[in-house]
Structures are given as structure tokens and as C-alpha cells.
């Protein structure tokens, strides 16, 4: 983090993390400090090997105290002495759910988003589904540039017309077809193709106890429907 980069290595600062006083390296981002202490907050556009981007806003946390609290994206926020952080306050959870709702409305077919909805216990999506196939998290663009060194894809357009593309929307000479962009894409994997009619929220796994998503994160439920959405024999086609 730029404003703390002058601080000598090894000197720690104290931050209040959910009411507990903990030590943190001033070179960390707030998200790194939160994850270091084992607190799980959802992220989508963050990857350890890539520069933080701060677009998905799911890592939102509340900082400050009293009347002066504000919501920040923790992946882009520096840590400093005496910083007060709440990762699961009511305001944070409400905001996080709304953000996820908007993301799901854009891309209802993503397994990762659907799993996250089950984890955050999102019950309904109030926005009209767009059925897009990209949430513009920029992971593929950063992967291509920073890890693969190819710089074959990037953003084009602006505002609602923004999209990810190759130069001049044509086959790119720079692209080595390494597939790293697809490897890192959070929406490329399709959601559970259970026997029930497709709705915006798959939501069957919200009803399982405990919620299955954290235990079977890698399981490909689009290959094997988890059938948690099946309530009775009449649902099976």
C-alpha cells in the first residue's frame, strides 16, 4: 500500500478487528490482515497473485467508530495504527447481500455466485436477470497481463457497454491460447443443473443443513445434481 510503504519492515501496527486488538503488518492490505486472522469474507475479483482491483466490492467491511463509520473494499484499503474494522456488522452483511444480488442478476448461470448466495443465505433476487456471461471482474485481464505477460485481452467501451475483448474484436496475435483466463474466470463454471425449472436463484442448497457449499466447494454439481432442490418424488422428472 503506497502511503505505508515508507514504514520499515517488521514494525507492526495495532488494529481493532471485530473488537479484538490484533497486530498487522502495515504493508498488508486490510483484506490480507483479515484473512491472516482466519476471518472468512467473500471475494470475487481478488487473487493472491494479482494486483488488487476492487471492483466486485464483495469484500466490503465497515471501518471507523461512532458516527464516523464507512464502508470500504478491504482488498484496496491499507491498514494503519488504531484502525477499527468490523467484518460482519449488520450494515456490512446487508450491503454484501445486495451486491451479490446485483451480481447474480447479471450472471445467474455461475456456480461460484450461486454457491456464494447459499453461503450468505441470500433468499431472493429482486432485480431483473440479465443472463450475461461476464461480471467485468477483470481477473482474466490481470491474469493475462501480470502472470502470462501476453496482454492479449483488455476492456473496451465504457459504462454499460464495457466488455472484455481482444484488440479490434478479432483473433489476437498475442494470445497463446494458454487458457489462464478461463481458469481464473469466476463465472465460467455453470451452476447446478438440477431437475427443477431454472430460476434466478438455484437456492436448493440453502435448505440443506449444514449448507453444503463450503464442504463441497470443488464438487462439480453441474455433473451430479445435488438434488437438494428436490423436496418430494413428484419433483423428479
Amino acid at each position: 500500500m503506497s502511503q505505508n510503504s515508507q514504514a520499515p519492515r517488521g514494525e507492526m501496527v495495532k488494529i481493532m478487528l471485530n473488537g479484538a486488538e490484533v497486530q498487522a503488518d502495515p504493508h498488508w492490505s486490510l483484506l490480507e490482515a483479515i484473512q491472516f486472522y482466519g476471518i472468512d469474507i467473500p471475494t470475487l475479483c481478488h487473487d493472491e497473485g494479482l494486483t488488487p482491483y476492487g471492483v466486485c466490492r464483495l469484500c466490503v467491511v465497515e471501518i471507523g467508530s461512532g458516527d464516523k463509520t464507512k464502508l470500504v473494499a478491504s482488498c484496496m484499503h491499507p491498514v494503519w495504527e488504531g484502525l477499527e474494522v468490523r467484518t460482519h456488522s449488520n450494515r456490512v452483511i446487508k450491503t454484501r447481500k445486495t451486491i451479490l444480488e446485483l451480481l447474480i442478476a447479471r450472471c445467474p448461470s455461475s456456480k461460484k455466485l450461486q454457491d456464494m448466495a447459499a453461503l450468505l443465505e441470500l433468499k431472493e433476487v429482486r432485480f431483473e436477470p440479465l443472463n450475461d456471461d461476464c461480471i467485468l471482474c477483470g481477473l482474466c485481464v490481470r491474469m493475462c497481463e501480470e502472470q502470462m505477460g501476453a496482454k492479449a485481452i483488455g476492456f473496451a467501451g465504457r459504462g454499460p457497454e464495457r466488455y472484455i475483448t481482444t484488440p479490434f474484436d478479432m483473433n489476437s496475435e498475442e494470445c497463446r491460447k494458454c487458457g489462464a483466463c478461463m481458469y481464473i474466470c469466476p463465472v465460467v463454471e455453470l451452476r447446478c443443473q438440477g431437475p427443477q425449472a431454472e430460476t434466478v436463484l438455484c437456492s436448493g442448497c440453502i435448505n440443506t443443513e449444514p449448507v453444503c457449499a463450503p464442504d463441497y466447494g470443488e464438487a462439480m454439481c453441474f455433473m451430479v445434481p445435488c438434488l437438494s432442490c428436490v423436496k418430494g418424488p413428484e419433483d423428479v422428472k
Binding site: 496482454k151 473496451a156 484488440p167
Partner: peptide, 10 residues
């Protein structure tokens, strides 16, 4: 990168 020029142009 070509894609950067394209991004700015669009």
C-alpha cells in the same frame, strides 16, 4: 499493448 490502444479508442 494493442488492446490498451483499442480500449482507449473505444
Amino acid at each position: 499493448p494493442r488492446v490498451q490502444v483499442f480500449g482507449v479508442a473505444t
